[in-house]
């Protein structure tokens, strides 16, 4: 870990906040995609089975 000196809080907060936001958009996109794929597969299954 590099010595961040007197700005350690600012640098850590900037990285933590950015990673949290990037993680949130990646997770939201992935989970919404999974749900849409599952729901569509179920709807197409119902359609095939009449």
């Amino acid at each position: 870990m590099p010595d961040l000196g007197k700005y350690a809080f600012e640098v850590t907060a900037a990285y933590a906040g950015s990673f949290a936001l990037l993680g949130a958009i990646v997770f939201a996109s992935w989970s919404r995609s999974r749900k849409a794929r599952r729901d569509l597969a179920a709807a197409e299954g119902r359609r095939r089975n009449g």
Partner: peptide, 27 residues
């Protein structure tokens, strides 16, 4: 590249949701 990957994932989701909506209307 992260932007492109996320936009593709989200666009594919939107296309699936449109298709799902159409199937639900037909049902």
């Amino acid at each position: 590249l992260l932007f492109l990957a996320l936009v593709l994932v989200r666009t594919r989701t939107e296309i699936r949701l449109r298709r799902l909506h159409a199937l639900q209307l037909r049902e």
